[in-house]
């Protein structure tokens, strides 16, 4: 790992990381983000995440990036899942059980149709 000794070093690392991120964004890959704070995990985010990963495996989906993040503050709606399809704005879903996660994967990620029943304002 490179060591950061100046503001220029920091800038370089930032630019490289940014490039990697943009590469991901323009690669046509879909991003599925699961909120993994304490509240999310207590509400079942691990099971939700597992359902998403299982779905990717069983349906043999490629080009999907699954990420975790902290709690966005909407505790009453945990577990929270966000879907970023390339070229579209981010969609936030609330109270995502494993079953709902499978529906979101099928209908939204694979089929391109937002599952509006579980959509919340992000």
């Amino acid at each position: 790992m490179p060591s950061i000794k100046s503001l220029d070093d920091l800038k370089k690392i930032r630019e490289e990381a940014l490039k990697k991120q943009q590469l991901k964004e323009t690669s046509g890959k879909t991003e599925v983000v699961v909120g993994m704070g304490t509240v999310g995990i207590a509400a079942g985010a691990r099971e939700t995440l597992k359902a998403i990963l299982d779905m990717i495996e069983s349906e043999d989906l490629s080009d999907i990036i699954v990420r975790q993040t902290g709690n966005i503050g909407l505790d009453s709606f945990e577990p929270i899942v966000q879907v970023n399809l390339t070229g579209e704005s981010k969609v936030t879903y609330g109270k995502v059980s494993p079953e709902i996660a499978r529906r979101i994967m099928k209908e939204h990620v694979m089929g391109g149709e937002i599952v509006t029943e579980y959509q919340i304002e992000g």
């Binding site: 990381a17 991120q21 909120g35 993040t69 902290g70």
Partner: peptide, 15 residues
């Protein structure tokens, strides 16, 4: 950054 970045990746903080 909370709820946006992956807290386990320093690069995301640096970005």
């Amino acid at each position: 950054n909370v709820g946006l970045i992956d807290p386990e990746k320093i690069d995301e903080y640096i970005i």
